[in-house]
Design a protein around this nucleic acid. Structure first.
Lengths: 263, 263
DNA sequence: CGCGCATTTGAGGACTGTCAACTTCCGTGG
DNA sequence: CCACGGAAGTTGACAGTCCTCAAATGCGCG
């Protein structure tokens, strides 16, 4: 493992606050591994022996049921995953698959749990990480239940723009079919949703999306800090769900939804 | 606060492992409060000053956006809520409202965060609680994205039966409109879903649901331990999301879903 | 240059939401 | 004890959203 990799791991919110000793113990038993694209790192239902730290590449977390599959989250470096299962020393609820060539640090779960017991500051960092992940999932749920697919796409685009601070252009970092699943729709409907956003200044060119009328788009999307996390990547904000958990599912106008009565 | 209440709080997984001193400090600044039905305890976006411990009654967590509202979770005693926001000392993502008369212990957030720093075993309990909550939300997401509304209802019924160990009968503990929102559909569609389950031996009589043909129902529902948490309430299983986060939202056959290709 | 795969487009159907009317249930008050 | 009023729940008709299947288009890579 290159020293620069160690630095990157140590700069993770998870370890930034930990005692040097804690960090040393945790990474001592760790090993760095490279995986080709399309590799399944972990299957849902499997026991989890390692905490994964994505140092380079892209990983997708997905779930399956009854011959159906859906993407729940897309991770980019540097971020950890499967922490909840490690803390509880239990089976994974999501499968993990590389979307491209990846460099991943694997830290034995035992080491993590031991470090939590010995270093309360590290334990707090774990709690903060999990709290952020939980809130990310809550946002995802709200996004899914309260918005229809076009609204989800519009907000996704605005969020991408905000987090990457890219002027009027957003670059899609994964296949559209993966994005569609993450946003809770079929690839066909993602195409149609893009088309539906054309009147709002959105034009697509391969993986480059141009947002020509931010005002109009925002008017449709109605972004909400309680759903969309517009924090810039790598900012000094308390890391809260740095993964793309953008929500998913159909949710037309939003089923379980009840029109608020302004009584 | 009655001594019996203290016992119940201490028996929570969150405190069971904590040092007596930790427990004393945390509960010293706490106060027990009673709320009538329909009281809003907390609005999304509000700063969170207390960790809430529901000792009696029923609380609903919901989210709103653009004049729409959806129930994200229903809590029953004894459970804590808003822990993630307390840990991060940030705003709430969900509003909390009592569904009936409630008895709630409110512990200052400062006390919780201090206790985490001083008692690593308590910190670990917090981590386990959050990990369980996170996994509950993941289950909810999978439920929403991978199943249609009737499948969600069927699995909800089977889960209720399992957790309450009630023979062939399930008692609905909340209004059907609330259940509908939790399951991600409209009240009208909940009615229709119940009707659709009639061929599978399901009959409804007010708040009492009879499951007349568990085999057939399970064949339709295809319950999955990686989505449905069939752990009996109050069991000695590591508490993992004891809330009804049953999922929600429409999700017909499941949008973002891709038929698995058995290549 | 051509094959293969991702993406797009079109047509049709399934699932779900909306609206309105009706029934049932329940608590209040007579 | 019964009648009434209101809310919850149900049912029906209809519309909208989304999925499915199939075909066409476009793009990348060998």
């Amino acid at each position: 493992m290159r020293p620069s990799d160690l630095d990157r791991v140590q700069s993770l919110p998870l370890f930034a606050d930990a005692a040097p000793e804690t960090f040393r113990v945790a990474t001592a038993g760790a090993h760095l591994q490279r995986f080709p694209s399309g590799t399944t790192l972990l299957m849902e239902g499997d026991p989890v022996d390692f905490l994964y730290v994505l140092l380079d590449g892209q990983v997708e977390l997905h779930g399956t049921w009854n011959d159906r599959e859906t993407v729940l989250s897309i991770l980019r470096p540097v971020s950890t995953f499967i922490l909840a299962a490690v803390v509880l020393d239990t089976d994974a609820l999501m499968s993990a698959r590389t979307l491209e060539r990846c460099e991943i640090l694997m830290i034995p779960g035992d080491a993590i749990r031991t470090a939590m017991r010995l270093d309360s500051r590290f334990g707090m960092a774990v709690s903060r990480d999990l709290a952020g992940a939980f809130r990310g999932m809550v946002r995802c749920n709200k996004n899914m239940k309260l918005r229809n697919s076009t609204e989800r796409l519009a907000n996704y685009l605005l969020t991408q723009r905000a987090t990457h601070n890219s002027g009027g252009t957003v670059r899609l970092h994964h296949e559209k079919r993966v994005l569609a699943s993450l946003l809770g729709m079929t690839p066909e409907n993602l195409s149609r949703s893009f088309a539906a956003l054309q009147p709002y200044g959105v034009t697509v060119n391969g993986s480059v999306v141009t947002l020509g009328n931010l005002t109009a788009l925002a008017q449709l999307a109605k972004p909400d800090p309680l759903i969309d996390n517009h924090a810039p990547r790598g900012g000094d904000i308390v890391a809260e769900a740095d993964a793309e958990v953008w929500s998913t599912a159909q949710g037309r106008a939003a089923p379980s939804i009840v029109r608020l009565q302004h009584s």
